[in-house]
């Protein structure tokens, strides 16, 4: 089966006053219908930029997708016209952002904001779209939905605003939802509610989902496949089971050892990854993780390791076989 989304060798650069920032330095992956992909990494690793690049939402200047192809339903989104990409955004691919506080327009009613894309993309009349907006709010479990349509965003809590964002995302029955840190700003119990809701809805509608997060637990609970990113590149990818059960990249291994787990022996000390996350203005030559890596050999300083396949769809970009060390 052909994948729904194919990202090939995507590069996104930003020209800043301090120099060229290679936020995304050549990533490739694909995603099938109905699949959930976790994009994991720390701040500045390029996970959000890579997602924004897919929808050509990178502000230019300073940013630019300098190379790469993104095939979605057979078309290269990097090459289609402005009108065509607008037809994809919000309609075929929806995006849910991290900040529920700032991603809604404060002077427009909730109902208007949910109904607007429905009139634009689905060609519904005002009454029809308003009615459907009410149904969408019910679907994301907001009580008394019909009455709430006339409310303004400031009356909603953070969790409820994020529900509205999800309702907007679902409005046009997209094939793919990209959720960029959708629950990071929210409380623990609300996080669980929303993730459960999103997962349930994508299951019901067969929607593919990309969850961008730094939370390894969220990915373990919800993702089928995982891409681990570091300094703008994918360093390891595979099924969630393999990435967690048999991590092969030193960075992935380091991340797993550095977070406390609820089911872990509490006497065990955490093993932090030493050093700092990379400065994208000065990415070291060779493997970007080398300065923090316990396994590094001489070759790591010179040549950037490419992803190589280990087993069925489990790929890792590392010169060292960590199992031998």
């Amino acid at each position: 089966m052909k994948p729904l989304l194919e990202v090939k060798n995507l590069h996104t650069h930003f020209l800043t006053d301090d120099g060229l920032v290679k936020a995304v330095g050549g990533i490739s992956y694909d995603l099938h219908e109905g699949e959930t992909l976790g994009l994991v990494g720390e701040s500045g690793c390029g996970k959000s930029v890579s997602a924004l690049s897919i929808l050509r939402l990178i502000p230019n200047p300073p940013g630019k997708v300098v190379e790469g192809e993104v095939f979605f339903e057979g078309r290269d989104l990097m090459k289609v016209s402005e009108d065509e990409i607008r037809e994809v955004r919000g309609n075929k691919i929806a995006m849910i952002f991290q900040e529920p506080m700032t991603s809604l327009n404060p002077v427009l009613t909730i109902g208007y904001q949910i109904a607007e894309p429905l009139t634009l993309h689905k060609g519904l009349s005002k009454e029809e779209s308003w009615k459907e907006a009410g149904e969408l709010l019910t679907k994301v479990q907001i009580p008394e939905a019909a009455a709430r349509l006339r409310a303004y965003p400031h009356l909603f809590s953070g969790g409820m605003r994020q529900r509205v964002m999800i309702a907007m995302g679902l409005g046009c029955n997209p094939k793919l939802i990209i959720a960029d840190e959708p629950t990071t700003a929210l409380d623990v119990t609300i996080q669980a509610q929303l993730l459960e809701l999103m997962k349930g809805l994508t299951r019901d509608f067969g929607t593919a989902l990309i969850i961008i997060t730094h939370n390894l637990g969220v990915v373990a609970r919800y993702a089928d496949r995982v891409n681990v990113m570091y300094a703008g590149r994918i360093v390891e990818k595979g099924s969630a089971k393999e990435i967690y059960g048999d991590p092969r990249h030193p960075y992935t291994i380091g991340l797993m050892a550095s977070v406390p787990r609820l089911d872990m022996d509490v006497k065990k000390k955490l093993i932090p990854i030493e050093g700092q996350p990379p400065d994208l203005l000065h990415i070291p030559a060779g493997c970007a993780f080398r300065p923090r890596c316990n396994y590094a050999v001489e070759k790591c300083q010179e040549v950037i390791p490419e992803l190589t396949t280990l087993a069925d769809k489990h790929e890792v970009a590392c010169w060292v076989d960590v199992r031998r060390n």
Partner: peptide, 25 residues
């Protein structure tokens, strides 16, 4: 609260009971 914290292990997560409390604080 305990149930809402995911454990970074898909095998453990698949077997865990997830209590999702409704409503907001």
């Amino acid at each position: 609260l305990l149930s809402a914290i995911p454990i970074p292990d898909p095998v453990v997560e698949a077997e865990r009971e997830h209590i999702i409390i409704q409503g907001e604080v």
